[in-house]
């Protein structure tokens, strides 16, 4: 079997999806912790940390989602049409959640009065919870084969309200919260706030346990609800990824326990990425029931042009992204050294 342009495009798409889950997902998770931070006075420091950590980067992290959507309609147009038409309801709700979240976050930052900060903050936090849930239910619908090819050919409700979808939706929320807690622990430590680092360490441990439990429960639900997917995940190419995910998940708990906040970032990301790639590998090359990649893929001319454009873009993007993340992962210069204007 030789690698085709369509395979390469799918790999790029899956890399984009992974980046969105790991980076954008953590931004959602930040919102979840914002929601759970407690009253205005008690939660102030936590909220400030969340805001400080995601403020400069969330718009960039968000673009990964746009890239995934665009690559879907460019590279595998019939899949895009089938997914968006059948999963119209959860995707509309997710899109509205994205609007509420971004606007709430920006509006809160621009507000000075407490009641306004509360109102916009609540919008931001609440939509951080529901958006990953709906995106997760949509993913569960696709994974369990409930989205047939064609326009709106699947059941408009049962395609996303079913055991697999619900578990996947919950897993998406838990994953987001877990990643965010892990990242925030290190951010708090770097800012020199040991209290807050300890707090988020607890939360990360808790969220890690919940996520792991949900992943296991998810496998059991899959066995009953979509045996096909279960078989794919537990055999063949998917298995090594699932095992990687499990091992990295356990390792993350150990690292968190031992306060290795930087190393746990890597293992936590691997645990989540392993699940995603396991799903991808399990399903490959079938994208939707009866629709293999070969049939769904765009013409080679389109694939080649798109991949070339992205490759050129990557040359610009890689150093820029590096610069962005390192600029804000470095400590602030002390006030007296700040340039005057």
């Amino acid at each position: 079997m030789s690698l085709t342009l369509a395979d390469v495009l799918m790999a790029v798409l899956w890399i984009g999806l992974t980046a969105y889950v790991l980076l954008g997902g953590a931004d959602f998770g930040g919102g979840v912790w914002d929601l759970l931070a407690g009253g205005a006075a008690r939660g102030r420091r936590q909220r400030a940390l969340v805001e400080h950590s995601i403020g400069p980067v969330w718009e960039t992290n968000h673009v990964w989602l746009i890239l995934v959507i665009v690559l879907m309609w460019t590279g595998i147009p019939p899949v895009f049409a089938a997914v968006t038409s059948t999963l119209y309801i959860p995707l509309t709700l997710a899109a509205l959640g994205i609007i509420a979240r971004g606007a709430g976050f920006a509006f809160r930052k621009a507000s000075t009065e407490v009641w306004r900060q509360r109102l916009f903050g609540a919008t931001f936090a609440f939509s951080s919870l529901v958006t990953p849930f709906f995106l997760g239910t949509a993913a569960g619908g696709i994974a369990s084969g409930r989205v047939p090819p064609g326009l709106a050919r699947g059941d408009l409700v049962a395609s996303w309200l079913n055991p697999t979808s619900v578990v996947t939706g919950l897993l998406a929320v838990a994953t987001a919260a877990y990643l965010a807690a892990v990242y925030l622990t290190r951010d708090a430590e770097r800012a020199g706030d040991q209290d807050l680092a300890g707090l988020f360490r607890h939360r990360a441990l808790l969220a890690g346990l919940v996520t792991g439990a949900l992943a296991v429960a998810g496998l059991l639900v899959l066995r009953a609800d979509s045996p096909g997917l279960f078989r794919e995940l537990t055999s063949g190419w998917a298995l090594p990824f699932v095992v990687l995910s499990a091992v990295a998940g356990v390792a993350s708990l150990v690292l968190l326990w031992r306060r290795s906040y930087l190393a746990v970032r890597v293992t936590a990301a691997l645990a989540v990425a392993g699940l995603l790639w396991g799903w991808g590998a399990g399903q490959y090359p079938m994208l939707l029931p009866g629709l293999p990649l070969r049939t769904a893929a765009a013409t080679d001319a389109v694939l080649a042009a798109t991949l070339a454009a992205l490759a050129l873009g990557a040359l610009l993007l890689a150093p820029s992204l590096w610069w962005l993340y390192t600029t804000f992962q470095r400590p602030h210069p002390p006030p007296e050294k700040r340039p005057e204007h």
């Binding site: 960039t60 673009v63 746009i66 890239l67 665009v70 690559l71 309609w73 460019t74 590279g75 147009p77 019939p78 895009f80 049409a81 089938a82 326009l151 765009a298 013409t299 389109v302 042009a305 798109t306 454009a309 992205l310 050129l312 873009g313 610009l316 993007l317 820029s320 992204l321």
Partner: peptide
């Protein structure tokens, strides 16, 4: 579903510009 691929290229480039 039919013509997404025809207008895909400018949108992919737009994605890079958004980044």
């Amino acid at each position: 579903g039919t013509y997404g691929q025809v207008i895909g290229l400018p949108f992919a480039m737009e994605g890079v510009a958004f980044f």
